[in-house]
Design a protein around this nucleic acid. Structure first.
Length: 754
DNA sequence: CGCCAAACTTAGTAAATTACGT
DNA sequence: ACGTAATTTACTAAGTTTGGCG
């Protein structure tokens, strides 16, 4: 699929370096920390979608924010490092822990884990290798018989006795079962982090799966549902009807009213029509999808109103699909697949002002799909009457199947779940690289501070960009093809129109005001005091440029990353995000939590530390639909509780008075006093808890914590914190997060330092 | 070396499920 | 027991980085 590439390079105003200014500031660089002090009310783009070319369109409705004028010089505190992760990525071998107690260069923290592991898993103490073999055999069988087992299991239990309330024993039994299941799961978990890594690019030795799951074929409309054109009933061909229904289903959505969306849809829809249909249907405005829309709504409603039994049937059917297609066998271990379903056809909805919104995302056929698996072992069977596009056996990649999507012409992959070895190992490695950056970040910062004074314009641009990436955790910012995607930028692709320089703003000198749309059209708005050298460079970069010109005209991500990797193997722009996120969490946790706090308070602090990171990384969310409502509810509850507390207090006083006057010897009165005291205390605690909750929720209104938790924060920091603070890991990680971070939970001791 | 396809991570939102208060 | 709110999972778009090729 040829993507047309055209006149984009044209506009690059190549900037001639003017004379070099000697700048005299010598503040040191520093990152991460500052942003935290920013007020929580970060600006979610009011006009998330307003991305147009016109300069500064976005800029109007900024929430006034007063940045703390914290000097950028307070750099992140450095901890002594025991880590010496130094060899090149490629030759990385992980030592088998039990065999050789590991002075392994790369994963210093694995050592403590081995100790613990020995403690915890005495049962498996037969020779490691033997156990391995046994396990894998068992697993293989398990995979095959998995479905039947599951069915059996359910039958075995008390088939959830219809309505009758369950007896205490039954509840207890269920609980026991849960515990048992949990243990079983723990037992069968693949502890890949204790195994040796494969050489170089090899990702697996054996891979077997059932191929992707295809969405059901299109069901034609029932006879009583019609499409009308220009007021006349029109029976559409199957293909055209399917696409019409896609549109009808979106009629409630705002974007079905957008011009670009409608135009794209109509154009693509017409491509699906027969010649006759195309002749007839020329104007979208004359199309009446009313009955299709109504049918869809009725279906949704019906689904909602299904009885318990019906829902159970659906659930079981889904489970069956998961059992059959949701797992693969990778090097003798059963692994969950992340996205085993082929994406169903529909109308493309990009984010923000996407030029391709509304285009038809086509149905994928087996003939479009490439399968990747072992040569030996079963090869997935394509759906009846079909064949695969290709079957290949490439063990240097991690995907099981792929296809090319028709909107952008990019490849989509079917890959493993986050709790798999392949994903986990990579994740671990990511954090090790970030920790390595910790050990040399000072040098790198000194270097780019020097480079700010370089006589080469390119070098200075690189230095300023790096300063932003480090201090503000901006993304690298690849260039994008105009017209293919929404107009968003990152660091290297910033344009003149995205920053405003203020010699003096809100009492701070040298303030850079950023306002641009980043990934997913999320607005980045920030006013940041920078060091003078950076400020002066920026002024220089802006000279003789138009708002639409690139700020860093001598720089792109590839230049930047090449430079970075020369400073430290494995270093790229995004490592700074990981590093600054993780180091910020660690530092904030240290600052905010006390061992003496209650669990609720500790968790609030954890959330706050997490939030500091989310703010740094600009992870936003739409305020929940019901936010104001639920906030009001909570407030009402707090008020009610306050009243109750007041009442309890007067009662206590009353009781005390009585106890005093009517002879303090009366034990009944004494216990009454005690009881009232307890009530007051309980009330106070509950009130505090709710107030804490309210604070937490309010502060979180438009901040998304999940993204940083899942992708930027070294889980070992959190696990170590839990150990130190005696907080259950379950309190901060839910089930799937615990699965994803199983490696960290298993290997991390309380003394872990990022 | 620049360009582009490939591969993989990161991202927000919608749907589904579970928890919770009445 | 039931309806609502909160949480979790599913989904897939949108980034970054690498490496091969002309």
């Amino acid at each position: 699929m040829g993507r047309e590439k055209d006149a984009k390079g044209e506009g690059k105003a190549k900037y001639k370096a003017t004379k070099l200014k000697r700048l005299s500031d010598n503040e040191s660089a520093g990152a991460g920390g500052d942003a935290i002090k920013n007020s929580i009310k970060s600006a979610k783009s009011a006009e998330k979608t307003d991305s147009g070319k016109s300069p500064k369109k976005v800029k109007k409705s900024k929430t006034e924010r007063h940045e703390s004028a914290s000097s950028p010089s307070e750099s992140v505190k450095q901890e002594p490092m025991d880590d010496d992760f130094r060899e090149k990525k490629k030759g990385l071998k992980r030592k088998r822990i039990k065999d050789e107690p590991m002075e392994g260069p790369s994963h210093s923290t694995a050592t403590p884990s081995s100790k613990k592991k020995n403690k915890r898993h005495k049962q498996e103490e037969e020779s490691d290798r033997e156990a391995e073999k046994k396990k894998s055999k068992k697993k293989t069988e398990k995979v095959n018989s998995c479905l039947s087992q599951m069915v059996k299991k359910e039958e075995g239990e008390h088939p959830i006795s219809k309505k009758p309330k369950r007896t205490k024993e039954e509840i207890e039994e269920a609980r026991q079962l849960k515990i048992k299941k949990k243990e079983e799961e723990e037992q069968s978990r693949w502890r890949w982090w204790e195994e040796e890594k494969y050489e170089d690019g090899v990702k697996w030795k054996f891979l077997e799966h059932n191929g992707p799951y295809f969405p059901a074929n299109y069901e034609p409309l029932p006879d009583n549902v019609h499409f009308y054109y220009n007021g006349k009933k029109v029976k559409l061909s199957l293909a055209a009807e399917e696409v019409a229904l896609f549109f009808a289903q979106m009629l409630d959505h705002e974007y079905s009213t957008k011009k670009v969306f409608r135009d794209n849809f109509f154009k693509d829809w017409r491509k699906e029509m027969t010649h006759e249909e195309r002749l007839l249907i020329q104007d979208l405005e004359k199309c009446d999808f009313g009955e299709l829309h109504a049918m869809h709504k009725a279906k949704v409603e019906a689904r909602k109103n299904m009885t318990k039994e019906e829902k159970l049937v659906v659930k079981e059917a889904n489970q069956k699909i998961v059992d059959e297609y949701g797992y693969c066998l990778l090097d003798h271990h059963k692994e969950r697949i992340g996205n085993f379903k082929i994406e169903p056809p529909g109308l493309f909805r990009g984010r923000g002002e996407h030029p391709k919104q509304g285009m038809l995302k086509k149905r994928i056929q087996p003939e479009d799909v490439i399968i990747n698996c072992s040569k030996e072992g079963r090869i997935p069977i394509p759906p009846a009457g079909h064949r695969w596009k290709e079957v290949r056996h490439d063990n240097t990649v991690t995907w099981l199947a792929s296809w090319t999507e028709n909107i952008q012409g990019s490849i989509k992959y079917i890959m493993l779940n986050a709790n798999s070895k392949l994903k986990g190992e990579k994740d671990w490695e990511k954090y090790e690289i970030a920790r390595k950056l910790k050990s040399c970040v000072d040098d790198i910062r000194n270097q780019y501070m020097q480079d700010l004074k370089s006589k080469h314009m390119g070098t200075r641009q690189r230095a300023v960009a790096l300063y932003f990436i480090d201090k503000l955790a901006l993304r690298a910012g690849n260039e994008k093809e105009e017209g293919e995607t929404a107009d968003t930028v990152g660091c290297c692709s910033l344009r003149v129109e995205h920053i405003t320089l203020h010699e003096l703003l809100d009492g701070s000198e040298c303030v850079v005001e950023f306002d641009f749309l980043g990934k997913d059209c999320i607005r980045y708005y920030n006013k940041v005091p920078v060091i003078r050298k950076v400020f002066k460079n920026l002024k220089l970069f802006l000279e003789n440029k138009q708002p639409g010109d690139e700020l860093f005209d001598r720089l792109n991500t590839s230049v930047l990353n090449k430079h970075l990797s020369s400073l430290m193997p494995g270093l790229t722009a995004k490592v700074f995000r990981t590093y600054n996120a993780s180091i910020t969490l660690q530092q904030q946790l240290k600052e905010l939590t006390n061992k003496a706090d209650s669990v609720a308070e500790k968790l609030l602090s954890y959330n706050r530390a997490n939030r500091a990171v989310a703010i740094l990384c600009n992870h936003q969310r739409a305020p929940p639909k019901t936010f104001d409502q639920s906030m009001a509810n909570l407030q009402a509850k707090i008020d009610a509780r306050k009243e109750q507390l007041a009442l309890a207090k007067t009662e206590l006083k009353q009781a005390k008075k009585e106890a005093k006057t009517k002879g303090s010897s009366d034990p009944k009165l004494q216990t009454l006093v005690e009881r009232k005291k307890a009530a007051v205390k309980r009330c106070e605690e509950q009130l505090l808890k709710m107030e804490v909750q309210a604070t937490d929720r309010e502060e979180n209104k438009q901040i998304a914590l999940g993204t940083s938790k899942l992708n930027y924060l070294d889980p070992r920091i959190s696990v170590a914190w839990c150990k130190n603070m005696e907080v259950l890991v379950d309190k901060i990680y839910n089930k799937s997060q615990r699965d994803k971070f199983a490696w960290a939970i298993d290997m991390t001791e309380a003394d872990f330092e990022f």
